[in-house]
Design a protein around this nucleic acid. Structure first.
Lengths: 191, 191
DNA sequence: CCTACCGATCGGTAGG
DNA sequence: CCTACCGATCGGTAGG
């Protein structure tokens, strides 16, 4: 029983995520959040220390998931670089689609994090991009890929995937999106 | 002289754009804006009717530029579809890089527009995406492109370009970005 | 978890 | 374009 039970704090975090996504972090008041979970504004502070803390938790949870996924991909050795890239893209898409609200907050609201959290998260993002780029570099070195500027291509691919959080609808099941992105970037659209 | 003169309203709009970009629309107060242009908060209202109006102006200006660029591309007939796609990508990138702050506000803050403006802008975005997709459809019909899902590919390409507003740095001059994106999507990275 | 409240700040207005 | 101000709301706290 208790393993399946959702704690009050978890409920507050999930509700905050939904509100931050739809109204923005600054546009969501602690009273909005209190109303949504069914308590008074002041009572929230027996569960969390501050509004900032909620945003911190959401952003670092998502950043952690992104880095965990890419580390998993980089630890595999017996596969082609194309397969590795497809795995990395699939992992990235999985993090986004499995919690679209939290990912949305992560990307659109992290600028409101106070220091030192803002700088810490920025570093995590840079580390992630470097890991992702290392796959492209590996493919260039092995002759499997032809890429003039791996930094540009890394950002181009990641931007495309991250845009998912703003799509109104998907034209395919979420689990197919990763492979579709991989095919687009690896083969291109030229016949 | 007067043709080169920047009106007080233009100065307010440009300053508001910069503030909305860095602090967000909700996170920017009319007092922040007043300080930045060197007047008192109440005085702003002799130039604008409301805070909303500033956001409206920024968002609809950018949406107008995007649609103007794509209409220009669609009016050209004597070129291949690949060339047409590259032109569309170049036009899109041009709008972004020529006014990165305004484009950033357009994408990240338009959700705060009150109705009916929010719905109007949403329609403009859908119209733009349809126009862009028509280029891909044309390429598929002529056999020039091989695309399983043009809706997906349209969103994938546009998401990638729109991500530009969040890039910390460019690894190439802004005017080269469009062609680099076009090459990435048309040819892919496979050697 | 509630009641009652704090000082600060919000978008916007009246009158000059 | 300024001064002075409006009611509303903000994040957060004290005491129970």
């Amino acid at each position: 029983m208790s393993l399946l039970q959702i704690s009050r704090l978890d409920e507050i975090l999930e509700t905050a995520t939904n509100l931050f996504k739809s109204k923005g972090y600054v546009g969501t008041s602690m009273r909005d959040l209190a109303d949504a979970v069914g308590m008074e504004a002041g009572s929230l502070y027996s569960h969390v220390d501050s509004k900032d803390e909620l945003l911190q938790h959401i952003c670092f949870t998502i950043a952690g998931r992104f880095n965990k996924e890419i580390d998993l991909v980089l630890s595999v050795t017996n596969c082609s670089t194309s397969e590795k890239l497809e795995s990395a893209i699939n992992g990235h898409v999985k993090v986004i689609t499995e919690d679209i609200n939290a990912t949305s907050v992560f990307w659109n609201e992290w600028k409101y994090l106070p220091e030192p959290h803002h700088s810490e998260l920025s570093k995590l993002q840079v580390v992630y991009e470097h890991k992702f780029r290392s796959i492209l570099d590996e493919g260039v070195n092995s002759g499997e890929f032809k890429i003039a500027d791996t930094t540009f291509t890394t950002m181009g691919i990641l931007s495309s995937l991250n845009g998912l959080q703003k799509w109104r609808t998907y034209s395919m099941p979420p689990e197919d999106l990763g492979s579709a992105f991989a095919a687009l970037f690896i083969k291109g659209i030229k016949n």
